[in-house]
Design a binder for these strands. Structure first.
Lengths: 148, 148
DNA sequence: GTCAAATATATTGCGCACAATTTAGTTGCT
DNA sequence: AGCAACTAAATTGTGCGCAATATATTTGAC
């Protein structure tokens, strides 16, 4: 390992964080065209995936699964409701809580989403093993940074 | 490799893209506190790094190095100019082009930025080798997605 | 039962990120 | 020289992402 001077130390192109940041942006950008026909953004697509696997969950739980706070989820979920994909209803047992329920239209979107997933998988230049490696590293980083 | 049903296929927690997305957000969030004392956001910090390594470059070149378009860079660079860290001057040879020049204050920030970098490096739970692996996978993904 | 602490969601404000479009300047063809 | 094609920035509009704050409801200690 050679001694770095200041220029090297702050060189953008040598920083893993910048690569992570740019790759995430490129990925979302790449999803955009694929999601256009579903009329969904990438974060909206993520929220729908949560709903497809756990219909009836609360806004709080949605935020936990997406790793987002209410300042992000509330408007996002309102947009999905405006599109007619879900309903937001107050929980009878605890009026503070807001439950999310798929509409028929929201459920129907699932089949078309599977096609998007397949199309995106083809776009990726990484092998299954590399994708798993990337996921594992990202998860490790996120978990550590969140509860540091 | 076992056959997946639809639920598995669209399970959020099994998708590398979601891990990438969440890790990038967590990383930017983590940088936020460290960058607070420099009064910079993470994208602004990136732009400053470019300037520290290539003072006098054009807005176009800045966008290329950051992998961002003018809709992102123009307001970002105006904010940095408003903070007194750089100047935006039209190129004499080609009036379409806008050149970016560090101010003394912008240059002075570099030393303090080195401290931020060191502090962030300590936060990362990954080894040098893992960080290099992550970088390599992210770069491969981004490059492929950009010119696909 | 009262009231302070905790909890769930919503709101506000700012700064990206980017597609689409506009404006201004340059180049190249004839 | 005239003009179309190209190029560099800037602008516009939408949707995050999140810190900070506000609002409403519930829980728990007494």
């Amino acid at each position: 390992m050679s001694q770095m001077n200041n220029d090297d130390a702050l060189c953008l192109e040598k920083q893993s964080c910048f690569s992570l940041y740019s790759a995430a942006n490129a990925m979302v950008r790449s999803y955009r065209t694929a999601l256009l026909e579903l009329d969904l953004t990438y974060p909206q697509y993520l929220a729908m995936m949560v709903l497809w696997s756990e219909d009836g969950l609360s806004v709080k739980r949605m935020g936990e699964r997406l790793h987002m706070d209410s300042g992000t989820t509330t408007p996002l979920l309102k947009r999905l409701e405006a599109k007619g994909l879900l309903q937001r209803v107050r929980c009878k047992q605890d009026e503070r809580s807001c439950l999310l329920q798929l509409t028929d239209e929201g459920l129907a979107l699932k089949e078309r989403a599977l096609e998007v997933k397949k199309a995106m998988a083809c776009k990726a230049p990484l092998t299954e093993e590399e994708l798993e490696q990337l996921k594992s590293l990202c998860d490790k980083l996120r978990v550590h940074l969140c509860d540091q």
